[in-house]
Each structure stands twice: as C-alpha cells, then as structure tokens.
Amino acid sequence: MTVIWTQTGIVENDPWTQPSAEDGPKLLPLAEALEHAQDNAPFGVVLQPADDVRALAPVLDRLILVALTFPAFSDGRAFSQAMLLRERLGYKAELRAVGTVLLDQIPLMLRTGFDSFAVEHAPTIQRLIDKRLPGIDLHYQPAADAAAQTPGYSWRRTALLNG
C-alpha cells in the first residue's frame, strides 16, 4: 500500500491519493494542466521525466502540488526537474516524489527540494516512521534544501536540524 510521508510523518487522508476525491483538487498531466489553467481552482500536476518543468511557469501560482515521477530508481531526471522547479521557477508548494522511491534516495530528494514522498516498500515505510533516514548531514554542494553555509569553503553546507 502506498503511503505519503513528509518530514513531519505519515500523511493521513492525503487528498491526492483518496479514491473518492471527486470534488477534491485535480492531479493532471502536463498538457491538461496547462489547459486547466483557464479556470481558477488550485490544482496539481504530475510530470513525467521527459516533461520540461519550465512549461509550468505561467500556471505556477495556481499549483498546489507537483508530482515528479521516478519510473525506475536509475532514472534521475526528476532530481534536475526538482532543482529547476525550486531554484529557477521559485516553486514553493508541495513537491512530491512518485514512482520508484527508494529509502537511500530520499535524502537526495530532500536536498533537491522534494518534500513529500509516495512510498510502497514496507521496510522503507518502517524506517521513515522510525525517522531513520540514511542521509549524511554534511554536504559538499549547495542545493535546494534549507542548509546552512558552513564556515570554510563556499561550496559546503550543513543540514539544519529539523529544517
């Protein structure tokens, strides 16, 4: 079963994964999302790795969720899509990883700006519940997460506790 996890824990009643969310917000693929922008209701978009995230620029202020897809753990395009969304477009709302979301990739996803995760693998869910992420708090490069500039070399960062 898929659960949604964020850094505050498992999300109960996630509106995007409810089967009966008829009147809830819509989660649309890119092309439909750009059309949907005609009406004013907030909505979500799910992108595939080949989609250009920059196409979302005109509808950014109405988006309340962007889901980026990892079709396989080895397909890392969504890491760059996430960086562009956060750093280039300044997207501030929820950014969700969907598809093959591995425990060991979640720390990297957090750094590139993801803040929610659709997870299926039971041992992974348990580790997330236990708050035992296999990440490293010291970083050799700036990214899209809230990390502190450390004294010393300009490219280094350290994770903010509970950041």
């Binding site: 990297l108 050799y140 490219w155």
Partner: peptide, 16 residues
C-alpha cells in the same frame, strides 16, 4: 580536488 568535493554524494547527479 574542488571537483572531487563538489561531486561527492551530489544530490542531483548521483543517478545520471
């Protein structure tokens, strides 16, 4: 060395 540091566990470029 600068490239070594910058590329170590790079969040964006670990699944090229």
């Amino acid at each position: 060395e600068i490239l070594r540091q910058w590329s170590s566990v790079h969040p964006e470029f670990s699944y090229l």
